[in-house]
Nucleic acid binder design. Structure first.
Lengths: 154, 154
DNA sequence: CTACAAGCTCAACTTAACTTGAGGTCAAGC
DNA sequence: GCTTGACCTCAAGTTAAGTTGAGCTTGTAG
């Protein structure tokens, strides 16, 4: 194996762990790029592996391809991204992650408190206040805990 | 407004903040139930609000409707769920949330370290070791930081 | 030169989670 | 008793993120 500089789509697939079809798909969406050989086959530079890795990682934390694409679009076109380039990304995403983590914690801690009470059904619950337009429906059931039902069959 | 005991689909939609079509959809998936009036219209008991609230909350943290449905299926059929019933759910989900939070933290802390280095492209990176089958591709580029490319055009 | 694995393109299918629309019924006001 | 808005069913459309398959071309090993 000569000192390879470029990778075929199959090689990228193998090394990155994503399917060839997914790579095609990412390319169509502009998340990665390639150039073509005279025979129209894709060839990738090494940084595609980095990009794909990032795509996967970001997806695992629930970032959509659209967002990932937007972020990756900030990387330089003509050269291999530098450490600083990548760090811009990671910093941006770390903020997002911090936010997500905070949300999850809030949810986790809120669940046990909230689920058993009546607050979920109304727009007062901290868990429910995320911009649901909602209601102002007038008076209605406010604390809806059903009367302690006499459970007939367990 | 008489002491309402049952809700129409429109009322549930308004109070829960989800669309009527979504309620129909949830019902088709078995996540909520209703009975029908003589005129074939849906009527909901109060606990549907609780259920819908839970569905939304769970979705926000990335639990699929299928999973939510499975969890909700553990609630009693014939009676209004008790606090204990709900607590079983919340406990189960709290475990899931704890896991998710841990994952996110790992990712967050790993991002800055990993993104700038070469490890992502290989199966050694902690971020990439999540059961990607992958590679053993033989020798290849192991630390792929491209040579400091002479950047031609900004 | 000839296989045959890898690639290529393009279209269609898949799953999740809904929304939108068509065509028809129910309920409440006047 | 008619009009209007809320409902009903069922089918098809939508977005995300890919996968699968058909039909055709490349490239490499023998």
């Amino acid at each position: 194996m000569a000192p390879v500089t470029e990778l075929t789509v199959g090689q990228v697939a193998m090394r990155s762990g994503v399917a060839v079809s997914a790579l095609h798909f990412y390319e169509a969406r502009g998340l990665i790029r390639s150039h073509r050989t005279s025979g129209n086959q894709r060839r990738y530079g090494r940084d595609v592996l980095r990009r794909v890795a990032i795509i996967k990682v970001a997806q695992e934390v629930g970032i959509s391809l659209a967002e990932i694409g937007a972020a990756l679009a900030s990387l330089p076109e003509g050269r291999t991204p530098t450490r600083d380039d990548w760090n811009l990304l990671s910093t941006a995403w770390r903020d997002g992650l911090d936010h997500k983590i905070a949300q999850l914690k809030k949810l986790r801690d809120g669940l046990t408190d909230c689920i058993g009470c009546g607050c979920m059904s109304i727009d007062k619950c901290p868990l429910r206040n995320k911009g649901d337009r909602l209601s102002r429906e007038g008076t209605g059931a406010r604390r809806l805990i059903a009367p302690p039902s006499p459970r007939s069959g367990g």
